[in-house]
Design a protein around this nucleic acid. Structure first.
Length: 427
RNA sequence: GUGGGCGUAGCUCAGUUGGUUAGAGCGCCGGAUUGUGGUUCCGGAGGUCGCCGGUUCAAUUCCGGUCGUCCACCCCA
């Protein structure tokens, strides 16, 4: 047992090579997909002033901030999410950037709360945002990237889907049902946790806190249960406040269908999402089996930049964490087996070949090959054993006889076949 | 923040009805093999039985606390 005094902090992870490979596998896929869509990568500091979150993120995040006072008496916090940093960065420089701004990042984020399955005190999150475009094409583009990020890792429409909603549509629908404007926030809160509440308890909240009668609650439930825009249109489509909102969401779905991603999209008006700054279409990615937490969450946040003191620019984006995703990939057998690998392992027969072996190794490395050799004198058998263990594709044996003739023995470690080749022709 | 399960070697776990030097498999290191690996055989290192306290002649074992971890709740970026 390691000394407790120096133990890893709870909720934090070490990444020895095998775990690092898993993390790199995921992050490489994220980066490939974002680049494919023409997005540019950025980052910011992991430590920000506390105020950035207290004033802009909403109450729920603040209680879980990893914050402290630094040596300069500044109230600071490790970043719990990337969007406020993005807003701050763009508030400073968006005026000089061509729109729409299409940026992505893979920050390590922190929160101070008790760790459990799918939630640690630290995780890596893929953030993708479009800033400066208010149309649904931007919403759909961002959702498509999130979906492709998972497809790139081998997941299919059988594994996951996007649940889509729109706060403006939901607001209009609640208006038709008869929810008072000043009760909208309460209604959102109840809808947000409706899946976690027993039916009668939710109904009681709708009656007591939102002020609905039985008839209205029935209409609300039909609306929330709808998994198709046509179902919603059939019941509420005639309303003039609802129709344009419905039309916008139809366009959004049509864009994703045109891309061939229709199988990944389903309507779910229960998706509210906790963050105070969302203003339009919101979505979550979740596993079809329903065993895990949401994999990804995102949506439109048109007010945020202005609130941070920047240009009033519309924005849409998502955050997708590595922890839940990693669990899903592991469950589906989609984490590649970890293997060490070398192009060449160089075996010296005796100490006399040392200099020649070092020269050969370095020439090969200069040409981009992955090369290793024993760092101390060992028998040939031992060196071959090490070469096999380290995943060498080939071994180059440098011996006194061969060296005299200007050749080395190349041994293919898969077939076991050996041949002599001139030392200058290797690689 | 609340409730519960679990902490024995690097890993997965046995075991100790409280009693002298706590075991296995895998992994690691070395040898069999001083110019040929993956198999095999032999040997070795590695544990204050999570930590602190209590009961006892004696605690890794029983009790309490604490820390860690997992699960559920709360909350959710």
């Amino acid at each position: 047992m390691a000394s407790q005094e120096f133990a890893r902090l709870p909720g934090f992870r070490d990444f020895p090579p095998e775990e690092f490979a898993r993390r790199a596998h995921i992050q490489r896929a994220w980066r490939r997909v974002a680049r494919r869509y023409g997005f540019e990568e950025y980052d910011g500091p992991p430590l920000e002033s506390l105020g950035l979150y207290v004033e802009k993120s909403g109450e729920e995040i603040v209680g879980q901030l990893y914050n402290f006072v630094d040596k300069g008496d500044r109230a600071v916090a490790l970043r719990p999410e990337m969007t406020p940093s993005l807003a701050r960065i763009l508030a400073e420089r968006s005026r000089g950037l061509s729109k729409p701004i299409r940026w992505f990042s893979m920050p390590q984020l922190f929160r101070y709360e008790r760790a459990q399955r799918g939630r640690l005190r630290e995780h890596f999150q893929w953030n993708v945002d479009i800033v400066g475009e208010a149309g649904v094409a931007a919403d759909a583009e961002v959702a498509a990237i999130a979906i492709d990020g998972l497809r790139e890792l081998g997941l299919t429409a059988d594994d996951f889907a996007a649940r889509v909603s729109d706060r403006r549509l939901l607001t209009a629908l609640l208006g038709v049902i008869g929810v008072d404007d000043d009760r909208l926030g309460v209604a959102f809160a109840v809808i947000d946790k409706i899946d976690r509440l027993p039916e009668d308890k939710a109904d009681r909240l709708f009656a007591d806190d939102v002020g609905l009668d039985d008839l209205q609650i029935g209409a609300l439930r039909r609306m929330l249960d709808a998994s198709d825009l046509d179902d919603v249109a059939e019941i509420f489509g005639q309303d003039e406040a609802v129709a344009p909102e419905l039309q916008r969401l139809r366009e959004y779905v049509a864009v994703l269908e045109a891309m061939g991603l229709g199988d990944f999209v389903q309507l779910d008006l229960r998706i509210v999402r906790g963050l105070a700054y969302y203003t339009g279409i919101v979505f979550e990615l979740f596993d079809r089996k329903g065993e895990l937490r949401a994999i990804c969450g995102g949506g439109r946040y048109d007010r945020l930049l202005e609130r941070v003191g920047g240009e009033p620019l519309p924005a849409v984006g998502f955050g997708l964490g590595d922890v839940v995703l990693g669990e899903l990939l592991a469950d589906r057998g989609l984490i590649p087996a970890y293997e060490r690998s070398l192009d060449y392992f160089i075996v010296s027969v005796s100490e006399d070949e040392r200099a020649a072996a070092l020269r050969l190794a370095h020439d090969l490395r200069d040409r981009g090959h992955v090369v290793a050799y024993a760092l101390r004198i060992q028998g040939v058998g031992k060196q071959l054993k090490v070469a096999a263990r380290e995943g060498a594709k080939a071994v180059l044996i440098v011996g006194p006889d061969e060296l005299q003739r200007g050749v080395v023995v190349e041994r293919d470690m898969t077939s076991g076949e050996q041949q002599e080749i001139p030392i200058g022709d290797v690689g």
